[in-house]
Nucleic acid binder design. Sequence first.
RNA 1: GCCAAGGUGGCAGAGUCCGGCCGAACGCAGCGGCCUGCAGAGCCGCCCACCGCCGGUUCAAAUCCGGCCCUUGGCUCCA
Length: 495
Amino acid sequence: MTLHVTNTLTGEKEPFEPNDPDDVLLYYCGLTVSDPAHLGHARGWVHVDVMHRWLAQLGYDVRHVENFTDVNEKIVARAGDPELGGDEAAVAEHYIADVLDDMRGLNLKRAEVYPRVSEHVPKIVDLVETLVEKGYAYEADGSVYFDVTAFDDYGKLSNQRVEEIEEQGDPDELSEKRHPADFALWKADGVSPDAVHEHRKADHPGDDGATPSGQTWPSPWGEGRPGWHIECSAMAMTHLDSTIDIHVGGQDLVFPHHENEIAQSEAATGQQFAKYWLHVRLLQTKAEKMSSSLGNFTTVGDALEAEGANVVRMFLLSTAYHNEAVYSDETLAEARERWERLERGYRTAVGACDSVDARTNEDDRDLRNTVDRARREFTEGMNDDFNTREATTALLELVGAVNRHVDDRETYDYRGLRLAVETFAELGGDVLGFQFRAETDGSAEVAGELVELVLSVRETEREAGNYDRADELRDELEAIGVTVEDTDDGATFRL
RNA sequence: GCCAAGGUGGCAGAGUCCGGCCGAACGCAGCGGCCUGCAGAGCCGCCCACCGCCGGUUCAAAUCCGGCCCUUGGCUCCA
């Protein structure tokens, strides 16, 4: 089966056919940098990362763009906080630096570009002018709004009907709009000082509520700043093309953000904006979504520190992007076990390959068949709308075959084990982005030798029957992070 | 209220598009056995599912059709 994806635009799972058969233009709606990133954001990133990696594996040249929204009222509201470095730009850069750290920590492949809204204001102004000229937008008191009644397809992504959309938003905007569903392309400076006051008061109870200068740029309609939706259109067009292949984002963005992107982009260019719209379902805590505004989140940094990138990735990939995922101590523990079983299986295979004495070229059908089956199931899973759960499951089934093979024989099917190792490295490593550690790295070599030394002492104690002492040594090693396991061939350890 | 996606074992989660191989995968937890000084890892076996409810279509339905109940997301900043 070839790659199929579930397209929100049509509501169907469709064969994936990019406009150019060799290239894929991929845009991901990145985050607004006014808070630290949490696991919900990481879920989106990791799934897009794996989509990118799988598309590359299939032979496509992937051009991947992921934006940072650094113009936003919340950022304006945070400006002036000395801990965050001062003005709006400093606040945004502060969070962007954190996010890039998180992304590195998660072992994400870098996107080609991480554009920022603040760097694309001229392009945005161009787009807004085009929309006004074409009659899709109108100016009102220094702001510019998109006229949804002028765009026939409005609502096609979210299946909303214009007549049914009721606006409960900003009263200032409401009075300026011709239709409640119209949305701002450009906002006049100070258009909603109340909103800024609210944030300021909440964050700084003693604040007198002085309106900050805000981030503003000159435009034909006066000083102001871009509306929330227009940025993505501008950046996607600038860095990719007027038509892109895959547009990915959280499912909370379907309406109004993505709907509005489609309207303004297609109205401006007359071309389809994105061929496939993929939406990552939200990460749930027990009863509700994880989100900055609800304050019920676990930060990416904290999760990485506690569990490491591999476990976090395993957790996020253990549910297909298109389904809701639940975050809890239990689901995280499961991910930890899945990852550790996978890595142990990898190490077992590598170790068996390295044990020269036991190598043969005999053929173990169970092992070789399972390698083939794992590759096939992995591929089928990934081609079926990037089903990463199936993909990880296929690898875990291979772990079982490796363990069985090594468990019940004196000599090993060297070629079969090599195939298993290559499969782990290629599918688990290159595609799913796991980082297997076969052995301790260079800097840990000395530490490793010291551990070996302690283990030899322990072995002596064991031979002398001093098991209490031997167990003490094992416990002390455990206390400093070295897990000891006894096997038929002597003790092994891992850090 | 409107739009969308879901409801599968103790947990988690595939399978639903293209009905039968689903007597329901993989994993976690639990139980028994092998191995073992102990522990861990590993292996073998087992327990736990009338696949939300009610009807219908069919030789055959978790999978198709209709109705209902419930959950989640969106309709306001949000991945």
